[in-house]
Nucleic acid binder design. Structure first.
Lengths: 197, 197
DNA sequence: TCCCAAGTGTTAGCGGCGCTTACATTGCGC
DNA sequence: GCGCAATGTAAGCGCCGCTAACACTTGGGA
């Protein structure tokens, strides 16, 4: 972390890495440009040479998250198996992201953080994630037309997303007295959401 | 809004009202205690006589939101009709809250805003909302045991919540090219989520 | 080879924020 | 009528995002 010369070397990359660490440690709101700059041994103004503002840095981190989500979706499908198993593994990918990296998850999906039109660099991987998810949905029922696939994808993703979001916001605590396992819920949710209609 | 004397009259109530207006205008992050104090013609330290910190004020606003949600749920059920119609109207209540008062909705459900253990004043109405929702779910199928009702309620609410959250975060924009109406989605979602399993 | 322009870093500072401490005023219950 | 709790104020701390003006470094063209 020491830096001999006047220039840092690759401050941009360093900022993204540090910001990501902060996001995963304390959530998006824990990212402070001043703090990051200090921890990288750089003045508080330096980050603005590489990112227009705080949101641009967060957008870069979120873009990484979406890229990795897409990659994980592809891996789940490449792993093969009965279509319904692939679908289930894909859902598990999403749940894993949400529960293993809640900070990153919130950065990617909370509405207030990246409000306004996100930069295209974010839009692209995010859209790709939809495409990948749809592809898996279409495997479950190859006869479905595109419109139906989209509807099922939105429904299924919404269910997963809503469950995760409510859980993370603590809105299920105290209500779900019987400890339904995530696997239980996943089955209950997916078997209904994606097999018919 | 003018205040002759030294004391404000009912600063607490004024703060909640102003905060709520700010939330509905610009979202929870638009609430600044200093700004609210100034707009109420009061010093910047005055709000802290009534709320421990910013989160406590937001929690009070959120509590209002939950109370009103509960009341709306009850109204939907009191309105009567075939069970499935009641269920549908209840879902509409939730969608209406989300789309007509997006700021309040985010305040109530975004995870970062009221993180940590919420004060009991918030916990209570929030839990009541679950109870009311479950009651309506149980009407659809009165033979279901409590555990099943809870599972269906969590599933259904999750689907609604996820759809709304994704929509508000702009994560559906550009993907749903065919403009499915909300009514379409509501049917697609609810008919699957709540009628069986 | 020199030199200059682009890139990258620094210093200093503006305005805003949440929150605290110490002090001032008020008005209600005794 | 008085004393005390409730409620207000002024001032200030430390943090934040962001900007403007200036300094250093480096690489590529004359």
């Amino acid at each position: 972390m020491s830096r001999p010369g006047y220039h840092h070397g690759d401050l941009r990359e360093g900022l993204v890495r540090a910001a990501r660490a902060a996001v995963e440690a304390g959530g998006p709101e824990a990212v402070s440009l001043r703090e990051l700059a200090q921890s990288l041994g750089v003045s508080t103004a330096a980050p603005y040479r590489h990112f227009r503002d705080r949101r641009a840095l967060l957008a870069a981190v979120a873009a990484e998250g979406f890229s990795e989500l897409v990659a994980a979706y592809k891996r789940a499908r490449a792993q093969g198996g009965v279509p319904m198993v692939v679908m289930r593994n894909t859902a598990r990918v999403y749940l894993a992201l949400a529960f293993a990296q809640p900070g990153m998850f919130r950065l990617m999906f909370d509405s207030d953080i990246l409000s306004g039109e996100p930069p295209p660099s974010l839009t692209d991987p995010a859209m790709e994630a939809w495409v990948e998810f749809c592809r898996t949905v279409s495997i479950v029922d190859p006869t479905a037309d595109e419109r139906t696939v989209k509807r099922r994808a939105v429904t299924g993703w919404s269910t997963l997303h809503g469950y995760v979001t409510l859980a993370q916001a603590g809105r299920l605590a105290g209500f779900m007295t019987e400890p339904l396992t995530e696997a239980d819920l996943l089955e209950a949710i997916l078997d209904k959401a994606l097999t018919e209609a």
